[in-house]
Design a binder for these strands. Structure first.
Lengths: 244, 244
DNA sequence: AAATAATGTGTTAGATTTACACATTAAATT
DNA sequence: AATTTAATGTGTAAATCTAACACATTATTT
C-alpha cells in the first residue's frame, strides 16, 4: 500500500495489474507520453526514474493506466496536466505498442503520445527529483520498451515539424527567428542556412512582427515575432487531404 | 449461444464484453481493419454487414477482440488471414480510437489498421455474402465510429503512397504502367499526366522490365513490369529519419 | 487498307530548393 | 571614443524538381 501510493507511473499499478490481468480476458491499457521541451538551445524530454526493480536506475516515460470512464485522449491529457501543471499542451497520438511481453507485470498494451510544452512555463514545477529533463541526444537504454517508443515518437516529431509549424508550442510567445531556427536545428539535428530558413518562414506568412527587439542578448538583438494561430488554422483547412 | 456463434465481428463478443467490461477495471480492446483492394480500376474496401440491431443494415469494418496471449500486430494479421485467406499482406497500424461511448456494448478501445491486398488472389474466397467489396467512393454512414476510422485510414493511405511505393501490394505481380497509374489515380482521386508519371517512376528505379507485353487487351499492349522488392528495401534504409 | 486508341518518348517553362556574399547594427574590446 | 567583433537582415544566381505540353509508334478495330 505504502509502496503503491508513492508510485505514480505505469509501474504504479503493477501489483493490481498482475492480479487482475491474469484472471480475466481483458487487457490492461496504459498511456505513455514523450514530453518534449526546448531549453538552452537543446531539445529535451521529460523522464522519470523507474521504480520497478527489474529496471532499477533506468529512466522511463511518463505514463499511467487509462481509466475505464475516461476518453483515451483525455487520459493522455490528464497525465500531462498532472505532471506539468500546464493545460495548453500540444498532444499527438503516435502508435500503440502491444507485444505480449513488453511489460514485466503482465499484458499491458500502451498507447504512445508525444507532447510539446513550453519548458519555461513548466520549469518551476519540477519539485520531484525523480523527474528530469534529458537531452534527447543522451536518451538511451530506457526501461521497458520505452526506448523504442521514444525513438518512434521522436521520428514522428521530426517528420511532423517539416509539414506543420509545431515548433511554436515549444517556444515562448515572443521569439526571434534565430531561436526558431535553433529549435528546428535541434529537433532535426541538422544545420540550416539562415537566409533560406527566414525566407521559407516568411513565405509561409504565419509570423506576426511585434516591432519589438530581443532584450539582454550579448549581441545585436533580433526582431521578435509571434505565431499567428488564426492564419494557421485557416491555412490548415486548405491542406486537408494532404494531412494525416 | 447460437447467436454468438454466427457473429464473427467485433460485435461477436458483445454479450461477453458487456458483462465483463462493466465488472472490472480493465478495458476491452479490439482491432479493426480497413482492407483495401483494387479491381476494375477502382479502389475498394472490404466491409461486413453489422449484426448489431442498433446498426442493422449498416456496413462495418472487419475486426475482432484481441486475444490476451497475442501480439497486437499478430492479432490484426490473424483477422486478415481468417478473412481473406492471404498471408502476404501489407499491414500498417494507423490510430487507436478510444472514446468512451464509441461502442454500444460498453467500453471498447480499438486499434485501427489498414491493409493492402491483391484482390485477384482473394476474389474467390468471398463465399460469405455478408462480406462485400465496396467502392471507396460509396463508403458512407458505416456502423459505430467506423466511418471516422475508415476516413482516417484512407487519408493515411493517400499520404503514404506519395512517400512510399505501396501500390504494388494491390496489383498482380506483373503489371503495366497504365495499371499502376490507374491505381494511383484511384487512390488519390486525381488525374495525372501519363508522361510525368512514367518519368517519375522510372527515375525511382524500382521496376524490373520483364520484356513481356500485356495479353488480351483491346488496344496496343503495354510492357509488363515487376516491383523490385530488393531495391526498395535497400533504398528504404537510406530514408531513415524521414520515415515514420 | 484505313481509322482508332492506346503506348512510348522528349522538350520547355515554371516553381521550388540550395548555395552563397555583403551591408547593417549593437555589444564588447581596446 | 574609436575599433573590433559577432550577430542580424537582405538579395541573387544556380540547380533541382515539378508541371505542362506534342508527336511518332503500334496493335486492334472497323
Amino acid at each position: 500500500m505504502e509502496l503503491e501510493s508513492k508510485l505514480s507511473q505505469s509501474e504504479k499499478s503493477i501489483l493490481t495489474i498482475q492480479s487482475e490481468v491474469q484472471n480475466t480476458n481483458r487487457i490492461a491499457l496504459s498511456v505513455d507520453c514523450v514530453i518534449f521541451g526546448f531549453d538552452e538551445n537543446k531539445l529535451k524530454v521529460l523522464l522519470i526514474r523507474s521504480d520497478l526493480k527489474k529496471y532499477k536506475g533506468k529512466w522511463s516515460l511518463l505514463g499511467d493506466l487509462i481509466k475505464p470512464a475516461e476518453d483515451l485522449d483525455k487520459s493522455a491529457y490528464r497525465i500531462l496536466q498532472q505532471r506539468t501543471g500546464l493545460d495548453d499542451i500540444y498532444l499527438e497520438q503516435v502508435h500503440t505498442f502491444g507485444e505480449i511481453k513488453r511489460h514485466p507485470a503482465g499484458r499491458v498494451i500502451t498507447v504512445a503520445y508525444y507532447s510539446l510544452i513550453n519548458i519555461q512555463h513548466h520549469k518551476l514545477k519540477i519539485y520531484d527529483n525523480e523527474l528530469h529533463w534529458h537531452d534527447v541526444k543522451n536518451v538511451t537504454d530506457l526501461a521497458f520498451d520505452h526506448q523504442e517508443i521514444f525513438d518512434t515518437c521522436y521520428k514522428r516529431l521530426q517528420k511532423r515539424i517539416l509539414e506543420h509549424p509545431l515548433g511554436f508550442n515549444l517556444l515562448p510567445k515572443k521569439f526571434s527567428l534565430r531561436e526558431l531556427q535553433n529549435l528546428y536545428e535541434s529537433i532535426l539535428d541538422t544545420k540550416m542556412d539562415r537566409r533560406n530558413f527566414r525566407k521559407k518562414f516568411f513565405s509561409m506568412d504565419l509570423l506576426t512582427d511585434l516591432n519589438e527587439m530581443e532584450q539582454d542578448v550579448p549581441h545585436r538583438p533580433g526582431k521578435l515575432y509571434q505565431f499567428n494561430f488564426k492564419k494557421y488554422e485557416k491555412k490548415k483547412k486548405t491542406w486537408i487531404g494532404i494531412d494525416f
